[in-house]
């Protein structure tokens, strides 16, 4: 790993605060925090140049546990607060920690508009499919019919696919990771950090108190390989313990096929994270267990100018064209007259 020689070499420890971590023991958030602290020192960015912004919820306590600048906001508004930080200070690396309730329910609007603008923010959406901090109500990602404290007869709300929303909002970087697969999570965080523009990372996160085991199909190592599809750019979509299954396109629908008996890798879909059209990313975002293995990795990574960059450019261009503004000239704009 290359470091700017002028910078001290940082370690995960440098990003540990003096605050007691108050998540429940066994919470998936611990893993996300640990991987994040592993990634931050590797980015070649002075640690005081990071800002972590959050909303409300368990995930939103994140900033207190990272030793840099932090802003614990109000429910759902973290992307909007972070947009202000980044617009005012394009030099900072701005991260958002949010959850399925914070980011997709109360704050859904900000999420959409941040992504379509392509503000250079890294958004980590901790998806545990439940409201944890308010003690167990269903969330916008809870599966239909789920029994919770606020849905004793089962929910009647159809859940949202977070990554589909990101596709619809024209997000330039869309990825999914799993708290239990720390290596892969670390990789995804690295990729998000390297992306210029909005990086949306959905992280499957186990709430062991109110929704324990929600992602066991993927998290439990024994059958992970059967239920998860690791996306690799330019590679065929293969999964399974014996890497004997794959995803093929049948008309416009994906289907699971078994390799062999004339079915070869060449018959499978090849992943292309940089496709200019988000059709493939959308399809992947809608593949759900148990019908499909659920994709993990980078769904989409494309280049588009960032909002903060364009905003900055307008200021620079206007200054170049008109010269640095002068108050006296601004006051004199339009008709003036003298009274003596």
């Amino acid at each position: 790993m290359h470091h700017d020689t002028s910078l001290p070499v940082l370690t995960a420890k440098d990003f540990t605060t003096d605050q007691d971590v108050r998540w429940c023991p066994g919470c998936g958030d611990y893993s996300i925090l640990a991987q994040m602290k592993k990634v931050l020192p590797t980015l070649g960015i002075p640690k005081e140049n990071f800002v972590f912004v959050s909303g409300i919820g368990c995930s939103s306590r994140f900033p207190y546990y990272v030793e840099t600048y932090g802003f614990h906001g109000i429910h759902g508004r973290a992307p909007a607060i972070a947009t202000g930080v980044k617009a005012a200070r394009p030099d900072l690396s701005v991260w958002v920690a949010t959850g399925d309730g914070d980011g997709l329910s109360i704050g859904g609007n900000h999420m959409i508009h941040t992504m379509r603008r392509n503000v250079d923010l890294k958004i980590l959406l901790f998806n545990n499919r439940i409201y944890g901090l308010t003690k167990g109500q269903y969330s916008p990602t809870s599966e239909l019919g789920k029994l919770t404290k606020s849905s004793p007869m089962g929910t009647v709300d159809n859940p949202i696919h977070p990554c589909s929303l990101a596709v619809g909002a024209e997000c330039t970087f869309i990825a999914r990771a799993l708290d239990a697969d720390v290596k892969h999570l670390e990789y995804v965080l690295q990729r998000a950090a390297a992306h210029k523009g909005t990086a949306f990372v959905e992280i499957y996160q186990n709430c062991n108190v109110f929704n324990d085991g929600a992602f066991d199909y993927a998290a439990v190592k024994d059958h992970r390989a059967e239920h998860v599809l690791y996306l690799e750019h330019g590679k065929p979509m293969i999964f399974g313990k014996n890497r004997d299954k794959g995803i093929r396109l049948n008309g416009l629908e994906p289907e699971v096929v078994t390799l062999g008996n004339g079915m070869t890798e060449d018959d499978l879909l090849f992943h292309d994270e940089s496709a200019s059209e988000p059709v493939l990313a959308l399809m992947l975002s809608r593949m759900t267990h148990p019908q499909f293995p659920e994709p993990l990795g980078i769904f989409r990574a494309v280049k588009r100018p960032t909002f903060d960059e364009l905003l900055d450019e307008q200021v620079k261009n206007a200054t170049k064209r008109l010269g640095r503004g002068r108050l006296a000239a601004m006051y004199d704009d339009g008709e003036t007259w003298e009274v003596s």
């Binding site: 802003f71 607060i81 202000g84 930080v85 005012a88 200070r89």
Partner: peptide, 10 residues
């Protein structure tokens, strides 16, 4: 909210 963020940024 963005106004608060910008103020935080200076």
């Amino acid at each position: 909210a963005s106004t608060l963020g910008a103020a935080f940024g200076g």
